[in-house]
């Protein structure tokens, strides 16, 4: 099956109040989707709904052909989510956290897309220390490493790339690009770093007031990527138009 994520008519929110509504989204293997939007536009709520952290008020989510509502455990095996850095289990060491995730996913702690990823992310000297001692960036690296464990078909990064140092960010982007180029994976990258999107993603959507406001295809992103600042201008224009409406 080519479709990794199928979201149809999704509404979700908190305490029965919809924060995102009417979301239709489909991701195929090879897609890298840039998820953009202002603070409070609903990006994190959408990701929480897709990953089964909040109840759906309407619509459906299927991951790799498996309905999230019907078979949540099987559906969750289809994605790797980079947990927000503050939500990592602080008492465990980085290695223990990786082992915990590996044991849940039924794979070894070294089942990563690249054998030397630990060194490339410069995690070697931190991995046996308690996560409580980590900086924000080091926590983000461990969260990303755990998301890649077992090479799930859908990778989800909710603003996790923002806290990385330039070398780690470059390495992670290389891994994501290589995985998706292999045709077996797709990725969602939620970010505020608008200028990074044309270089990394082949699709982008802008969220505003809880719904998908605008989308860019591969050709549009490639076109925008050729002129410095063009994509940022396009996003800002969409945001201004939305604010004026």
């Amino acid at each position: 099956m080519d479709e990794v994520l199928a979201v149809s008519g999704l509404s979700a929110g908190y305490r029965g109040r919809a924060v995102v509504r009417g979301i239709d989204l489909s991701l195929r293997r090879g897609d890298i989707l840039g998820l953009l939007g202002a603070n409070g536009s609903g990006k994190s709520t959408l990701i929480r709904a897709i990953t089964g952290q909040i109840p759906l008020l309407g619509g459906s989510v299927a991951i790799d052909g498996i309905g999230l509502a019907a078979a949540p455990e099987r559906a969750k095996a289809g994605f790797g989510l980079a947990i927000e850095p503050h939500e990592l289990p602080a008492p465990l060491s980085g290695r223990q956290y990786i082992e915990l995730v590996g044991s849940i996913r039924g794979c070894g702690p070294d089942d990563l897309p690249s054998g030397d990823l630990l060194e490339r992310l410069e995690l070697g000297r931190w991995i046996d220390r308690s996560i409580a001692e980590y900086s924000l960036g080091t926590r983000a690296k461990v969260a990303i490493l755990a998301a890649l464990l077992g090479r799930p078909p859908l990778l989800i990064f909710d603003e996790t790339l923002n806290g990385l140092d330039p070398v780690a960010a470059w390495e992670v982007k290389r891994v994501i690009t290589a995985l998706c180029a292999s045709g077996r994976h797709a990725a969602i990258v939620s970010t505020h770093v608008v200028e990074a999107v044309p270089a990394l993603c082949n699709r982008a959507v802008l969220m505003a007031d809880g719904s998908l406001d605008r989308s860019w295809g591969a050709a549009q992103l490639a076109e925008a990527g050729r002129v410095p600042g063009a994509f940022e201008d396009s996003v800002m224009q969409a945001l201004r138009m939305r604010a004026a409406a």
Partner: peptide, 28 residues
């Protein structure tokens, strides 16, 4: 605290691993 030689290692290896260390907030 720095992670030392964990006495709980053998007891806490069942799937999912390290869950009790996490629940009890025992560093490693």
């Amino acid at each position: 605290a720095p992670v030392g030689r964990p006495w709980l290692r053998r007891l806490d290896r069942a799937r999912p691993r390290w869950l009790s260390s996490w629940a009890w907030k025992l560093p490693g």
